[in-house]
Nucleic acid binder design. Structure first.
Lengths: 258, 258
DNA sequence: CGCAGGTTTGAGAGGAGTCAAGGGTTGTGG
DNA sequence: CCACAACCCTTGACTCCTCTCAAACCTGCG
């Protein structure tokens, strides 16, 4: 990666472009942002609850979860983040961390100072809009998770989650393939779906026996995508993966004017 | 209201100021936005799923819910909005509605064109940041709802929800009082908490018998706030009601410079 | 006065949780 | 290259919280 792509923030720019479109000046401004790489071990918090952070975290590699908690200590993952996700862009405008961030596998994080992000957003309206849009999409995913956890059976919840992950890992352009990387344990899946790990295991066994999906070796093996989406009642619209060619064009035009 | 407060968007400005602070020019720009009032009857959708909207909706009066859905048709409310909430500010940057909006009681909505909102956001970086911040806070509430629905008992869920509503209706400045307006039915509460209305009824009965809360005549009567927050494991931090006096001051300063 | 929508309660069923134990895998260190 | 430990997966038996189905009972309003 580092040979063909020397700037570690290039994937971030690519992601923003896919959804928002950015002019050359905007792209350059983002690539010029300071970015401090950090290695995080599995099950290690790198942002603690209540902490007031001064940087946002971009996932270069590995898997990251946002954790909420019960008083009794049972945990709920409210968001998962895969490589190319900016985990807490929202913290730029709301710095008090209202939930903890933890690596679900060994992960490489890029720390980008709030100060710098705020500055580019103030200088380039198109960037401010792009950041705002990313947050809006994260919120759409959260809303879908509320539905998932609130109104679907265990079977349906898991199928839906796996569909979402598969789509997000694959990205918009490509077809959903046979297997996608996803180094989460069944405990993690339980915390994402509001179930227990025991029940996740049983449900996953059923799906495997029916030749729908199987999880092995940090990978999701999709055996029957169509059935999986049906079982999970999955409609990828809310992920906004393809993005508006319209919006992009419009933003591009605006960028030129400004 | 209309006598002492002729501009219907004044409450919106007040809300933004409370969290973000805005200069005089920014305030004037927002007050100058076009706003088209609409009456909506109870249980009526005013934004349909999938529809591509060209305006955002501000709640002047009444109660509004954002609805997600199951394939079997059982519904999940992913967000409730009370007067002074801008329901779908996120739609400015993501126009495809990924969930329906429905009035839970008779409501008065102010429609504000996306075009106009986008323009003020592009012209005033402080406004763009304020809008972005509002979306980030909405997302924080959503994350808390995921935890609520995913990892808490029915009793705890309901208590938590009622705490949240009480705090939001009261606003930051005031103490939490004896009773707050909340014209939702037990069906609505069920759809907010991922329960059935039958179980909501039983749980509410228990809370009433214990003299903690009681719901009568479109009002929440708080009988024992301390116990209610304890039962609901409620910590209002995520609502960001008081807001940073810091942030405000900072934004104010920035606004003057710009 | 009667209807529609909301609330209340009962009885029984079932999905998911809890507790407990055994088996597999992975990675590290001797 | 083997051995051990830590972690993860798997399964069984039993419990219980919440759902489902069903039927009254309010209550505000036309």
């Amino acid at each position: 990666m580092s040979l063909s792509d020397p700037n570690p923030l290039q994937p971030f720019v690519n992601k923003l472009i896919a959804r928002s479109g950015l002019g050359a000046a905007e792209q350059a401004a983002i690539l010029a942002l300071p970015a401090n790489p950090v290695q995080v071990q599995t099950n290690r918090d790198f942002v603690r609850l209540g902490e007031c952070v001064d940087h946002a975290c971009f996932v270069l590699a590995g898997l990251v979860g946002r954790f909420g908690q019960n008083r009794e200590g049972s945990r709920q993952i409210t968001a998962v983040h895969i490589p190319t996700d900016m985990v807490d862009l929202h913290s730029v405008v709301v710095p008090g961390a209202s939930s903890a961030l933890q690596a679900l596998s060994v992960a490489t994080i890029l720390r980008v100072p709030h100060q710098a992000l705020r500055e580019v957003a103030r200088t380039f309206p198109a960037i401010a809009e792009a950041f705002w849009r990313e947050c809006a999409i994260d919120a759409a995913v959260l809303a879908e998770w509320v539905v998932n956890v609130g109104r679907r059976s265990a079977r349906c919840r898991l199928a839906h989650l796996l569909c979402e992950i598969a789509c997000r890992v694959e990205g918009s352009g490509k077809q959903v393939g046979f297997a996608v990387s996803f180094p989460a344990t069944q405990y993690h899946l339980a915390d994402m779906t509001g179930l227990t790990s025991v029940h996740v295991n049983r449900t996953l066994r059923d799906l495997r026996n029916e030749n729908v999906v199987s999880l092995q070796g940090r990978m999701i093996h999709i055996l029957d995508w169509k059935r999986l989406t049906k079982i999970g009642e999955f409609d990828p619209t809310y992920l906004h993966l393809e993005s508006g060619a319209n919006d992009s064009a419009e933003a591009e035009a605006e960028a030129e004017v400004a």
